[in-house]
Amino acid sequence: MPTTAIADKEIQVDAEGFMTEYDEWDEDLARVLASNIGIGELTEVHWSVINFLRADYVERGETPTLRRVSTTGGIPTKELFVLFPKKPARKMAYVAGLPKPVGCI
């Protein structure tokens, strides 16, 4: 498992670059991760997605799928495609410091 330095912090990531330690994440790191993948500014709605993802991960032990973010988190799917363009499920997991979602839908 490689470590890497992001925003002056040593963090654990997997081979693709997804963070592997839940507690190493913080909001400053999220801003850097977002800019790494071309998301300029994190708006209030971005944060509500990120916060839902992290809370749900703690509750259920897995990264929520797009559909769960819309049905349970209350953020419409269409909007997720605007906030995290093209591949929202993976991009939002990356910014939230979580593994890729494993569910199919």
């Binding site: 490689p2 470590t3 890497t4 330095a5 992001i6 040593e10 990531v13 081979a15 693709e16 670059g17 997804f18 790494n36 993948i37 093209k86 591949k87 993976r90 991009k91 990356y94």
Partner: peptide
Amino acid sequence: TAPMVVPDF
């Protein structure tokens, strides 16, 4: 410490 890896989306 490896250089920063960014997933290829």
